[in-house]
């Protein structure tokens, strides 16, 4: 189905074309042309304080248009606050933040017309059924009813919810609610899709299903901003990411680059080694002990295989290093807060 550009006097759209969720949109989005747009998001010395507590501490980053960008960090790292500032729900304490070239301090309605938001908490409207959740939401963007209806049907199809179109929201499973929230976030044909921990609490099947749909959006060049504490999710979905902790950025880069830069490519985990010290080894092997587990990092698996026999009475696992190793190294493995 081909849907023509929406038009209304105050939320006029003349941005470049994009296609999302299998829907071709002939002329862009529900927004005005942004001023000198170069990046999807630009943050410069971005800071947010609540009283004396600093949630986000003068961070800088740029999200390119069309890329999938991840924000990783433990609870309280400042990910959600950063995202809320991006979609204009939390005012900045200081610094600068541009979204598609618009300033979050002055151009809030323009930015919100361009952004699709998948919040951490479910905020679907329980007083409405599935299709009305989409249609009523479309009204907030002044999308004409006929176009909204067509788009809602397309998005329900894309998210596999067509059979549930007349179901009350409360009767949906957790996974279906998440899919409906993503569909709702796409109703305004956003340039930037912001997902705040979209798969937290979902079972693995549902999580992988949602990843497939997000990959499809990624192929369609929509800019995706994703916060998560699932490393696999970040590694699978993100072109680049930042690792945050206590309001600061600890590392920024492509997932594989971050792994190579911060830990060697392979790791041997040895479990239940209470009381023993890590073995001293070849120069290229780095040993770490955390709790009852030893970690040996090395650039090749051959350097690690001799170790397995030395721990023959323990459970061990030789595997490629992943983002979780980087994350735990940077934020501290033994931290429990």
């Amino acid at each position: 189905m081909r849907i023509s550009a929406f038009s209304n006097p105050s939320r006029k759209q003349n941005a470049p074309s994009s296609a999302v969720a299998g829907i071709k949109v002939s002329q862009g989005n529900h927004c005005e042309q942004s001023p000198g747009r170069r990046h999807a998001v630009e943050a410069h010395r971005l800071m947010k304080k609540y009283g004396t507590f600093t949630a986000v501490d003068e961070i800088d980053f740029i999200v390119e248009r069309g890329e999938s960008f991840g924000l990783l960090g433990p609870n309280g790292a400042g990910k959600s606050t950063t995202m809320r500032m991006i979609y204009c729900r939390t005012p900045l304490t200081s610094g600068h933040l541009l979204v598609e070239g618009w300033d979050v301090r002055h151009d809030q309605s323009k930015i919100k017309a361009l952004v699709g938001i998948v919040p951490q908490e479910n905020n679907l409207d329980p007083d409405l059924n599935v299709i009305d959740n989409l249609n009523v939401y479309a009204r907030y963007f002044r999308i004409p009813a006929g176009e909204a209806q067509d788009r809602a049907e397309e998005l329900l199809d894309f998210m596999g919810l067509t059979e549930k179109r007349n179901t009350w929201v409360e009767a949906l499973s957790g996974g279906m609610k998440r899919r409906l929230i993503v569909a709702r976030a796409l109703m305004n044909n956003p340039k930037v899709l912001v997902l705040d921990e979209p798969t937290t609490g979902l079972d693995p099947h549902v999580r992988h299903d949602l990843w497939d749909r997000l990959r499809e959006l990624r192929r369609r060049q929509i800019t995706i901003l994703l916060s998560t504490h699932y490393m696999e999710e970040a590694q699978t979905l993100c072109d680049r990411l930042i690792i945050m902790d206590r309001g600061k950025i600890l590392a920024l880069g492509k997932p594989l680059d971050l792994i190579e830069r911060n830990v060697s490519r392979f790791v041997l985990e040895v479990h239940e080694v209470d009381g023993r010290s890590p073995l001293s080894l070849a120069p290229k092997v780095i040993a770490e002990a955390h709790g009852a587990t030893h970690y040996y990092f090395a650039p090749s698996p051959e350097l690690l295989t001799p170790l397995i026999s030395k721990y023959s009475d323990h459970k061990s696992l030789l595997r490629p290093s992943n983002l979780e190793d980087v994350f735990l190294k940077l934020t501290g493995r033994d931290r429990l807060d």
Partner: peptide, 14 residues
């Protein structure tokens, strides 16, 4: 309880 305002404020509505 329903976070309806949160959802609405995620749109251009002020």
């Amino acid at each position: 309880y329903q976070s309806t305002y949160d959802a609405i404020l995620s749109t251009p509505i002020g």
